[in-house]
Write a protein that binds this DNA or RNA. Structure first.
Lengths: 98, 98
DNA sequence: ATAACGATTCGATAACTATCGAATTAATTG
DNA sequence: CAATTAATTCGATAGTTATCGAATCGTTAT
């Protein structure tokens, strides 16, 4: 991964609300029951103290950085984290070299 | 580490030039010879395509996020990465939960 | 002492961003 | 079909930031 792409990923995680959003998506994604493992945005909105338009904006940023993948299910939106990418980033950071 | 602090760290790494700067500090820091392990800012300036004032600004940001520690040596500035902090961050990311 | 050099500070500017409310779209339910 | 609900889009705004050139400060070398 080149520096520019890495910087883009960090930028996507650089806002407290967006990072919290990412963590919640990651947490739901790891639920033990498959039926519960789908992360709907609605559930997140109520727990964060920001409006729906802002959530929508943040999700777009996470998707744009490829940290999150989304899928439409009826009128709901399902979010999943891209685990491979976060693994790449952590490797980059722990090696501390390009 | 709480979400707010983590976001601050990611913000510090979110600019391509600043991230590159951080990587160079990390790289020099890992040099095998102790005599060579001191990272002077001057060396970095020439390799990055930005002016000295901007470098100074970026270093301040890295220090402010506690990612980098500095030390004055005569008219030079020595930079070292805070390895413990980056370890904390990578753990946070790989666990994917607060 | 004076020149040169590394680094910082300052002021300005252009670009970007987080957030909001209002309006809109699309899907579901009654 | 009408009403409700989830999500998005739009326009606006206030705040932040990356970068620059010029000026300045401190240290070293001549």
């Amino acid at each position: 991964m080149d520096t520019k792409k890495a910087a883009k990923i960090f930028k996507a995680l650089s806002n407290p609300n967006r990072l919290e959003l990412y963590f919640q998506i990651a947490k739901m994604h790891e639920s033990s029951f498959p039926a519960d493992s789908e992360c709907f945005v609605t559930d997140i909105i109520s727990s964060l103290n920001i409006g729906a338009p802002t959530i929508s904006h943040h999700i777009k940023e996470l998707v744009n950085a490829d940290l999150v993948r989304t899928e439409k299910k009826g009128k709901f939106l399902i979010c999943k984290v891209n685990e491979e990418l976060i693994e790449e980033v952590t490797k980059l950071l722990s090696l501390q070299q390009q």
